[in-house]
Nucleic acid binder design. Structure first.
Lengths: 262, 262
DNA sequence: CGGCTTCTTGATCAAGGTCAACCTTTGTGG
DNA sequence: CCACAAAGGTTGACCTTGATCAAGAAGCCG
């Protein structure tokens, strides 16, 4: 199912998977803590932007670098990653996309997506007509501001990641990334106890923290041997988040308060 | 002149320097190519947000990490840097702020600035009342969208920087940074021929590309010896931008077209 | 002319990359 | 249900890159 054909003829290739279509009014995402509660008119407007549900298999691209797209997507289920591919073929994962996140704004506003977004697991997306964004800004200014605030939070994550790559060692970077993901998963109710599903390959993890796969393994081992974090059989376990935070210098992101996701 | 006192009592500590106050209508920035042309009502609204001009000496902070601020600033003249300080005292420069850039949006929207902004040279700022942003979103939705687009471009720069730090060697990183700055300076008419004023200290450059000062020197030397770029007495010279681009793999940012700054 | 900061470089060392091998898990067809 | 293949995980040996430290050279200001 090539999504690449979708962008040009809007709404034609509706990839309904077997599951019933998701209706905004009852969208499960809205029940998460951390989500801004929509006003009736906001909800109505956004419902009107919705084009279709899309399902992609792991490894498929939602966006490719340089590709324009008249869509913006909300990730409904599964994990994805924003990434940049360098001229020498190496890849840098910029950020992980979790359920509830909005992607593709840059692609629409800048005319072409500056990065690719790839599914790490099978995912389900909600496709929204980006061309109605100007109308949204006109009709729902406070939603527009919330959107901007969410973007600032995303940028803040990027800034932090940048500081990590520039200034911290392998273990700290990794520890930090795990904590950040833990915090984001918690906001969405996807990380309840001390461990959770963590469907990220070693190589992808390495690409996210700027390490080689071999060295990532060494870092992972050290965290395991210190009892700070363990990653096995697709499960991440963090026995004591505070200790891990202390180890990584997580302090540099002061906000662990629940923040509005969208 | 501690700006730190400014945030609480809005508009009282107007730091007029000796130069006459800048009026939005005739603001020199608006004459730069690359700047979006304001409609009459947009200009009027923004004029209404303006609180005062502020002048800071090199080394002073516009924002400090964690500090809330009811202001948003436009950099009118000089260079500044967004930076993050880690718990071990090291610093990462996230981005350079050039004339025409807007800073402080994150600080306002997130309640506290997630990064600091420090003057690298003496600077002049235009202080805007951030508390009128919701009203701006209501009254001027298309300006709000332009603001969002500018933020996306800033984020794209961050993403690129992240990929550089994670995946490229010292020289390429440096080369890339210089090219990016060159491009941004050109948009503003601040880099006309093959060289320009470049008031960034070695240590700051090192903090921006994630290297030690010593190693930055080595990278700088290599670029010099290859005739790709030279930095001496506060002047940056790039004899052949194309060659430098080829060397650094600048390709990874496709957009060198003139983009609207605000 | 000192006394400061910034620049510059070399010597040494540690962090992380590369490569190659081997082990586990998962998935598939018989 | 097993056998085998393919993909991903894990580790060690060795080498490259960049950090650290220390010392000297230039600028820059009072």
């Amino acid at each position: 199912m090539p999504l690449s054909s979708l962008p040009t003829d809007l709404g034609i290739h509706a990839h309904h998977d077997s599951a019933p279509p998701v209706v905004c009014d009852t969208c499960a995402l809205r029940r998460c803590t951390g989500f801004r509660s929509f006003s009736k008119s906001e909800l109505q407007f956004v419902s009107g932007m919705k084009c279709c549900d899309v399902a992609l298999a792991a490894g498929e691209d939602v966006f490719r670098e340089g590709q324009p797209s008249p869509f913006v997507f909300t990730l409904y289920e599964g994990w994805a990653a924003r990434a940049l591919t360098l001229s020498d073929g190496t890849r840098q994962i910029l950020d992980f996309v979790l359920p509830g996140d909005l992607i593709g704004l840059a692609g629409y506003l800048l005319g072409a997506s500056p990065h690719s977004v790839r599914a790490l697991t099978p995912i389900r997306l909600c496709a929204l007509d980006a061309r109605q964004l100007p109308a949204l800004f006109r009709a729902e200014p406070s939603l527009a501001m919330a959107l901007m605030a969410a973007r600032m939070r995303e940028q803040q994550r990027g800034d932090t990641r940048l500081a990590l790559l520039g200034r911290l060692g392998a273990c700290e970077r990794l520890a930090y990334l795990l904590l950040e993901l833990r915090a984001r998963l918690r906001e969405r109710g996807l990380f309840e106890g001390r461990s959770c599903r963590f469907p990220v390959r070693r190589l992808q993890l390495a690409d996210a923290v700027g390490l080689s796969k071999a060295h990532l393994m060494r870092a992972l081992r050290e965290l395991r041997e210190r009892g700070l974090a363990e990653l096995a059989r697709g499960m991440l376990t963090i026995p004591n988040a505070r200790k891990l935070a202390q180890f990584s210098g997580y302090a540099l992101v002061p906000s662990s308060e629940p923040s509005t996701i969208l």
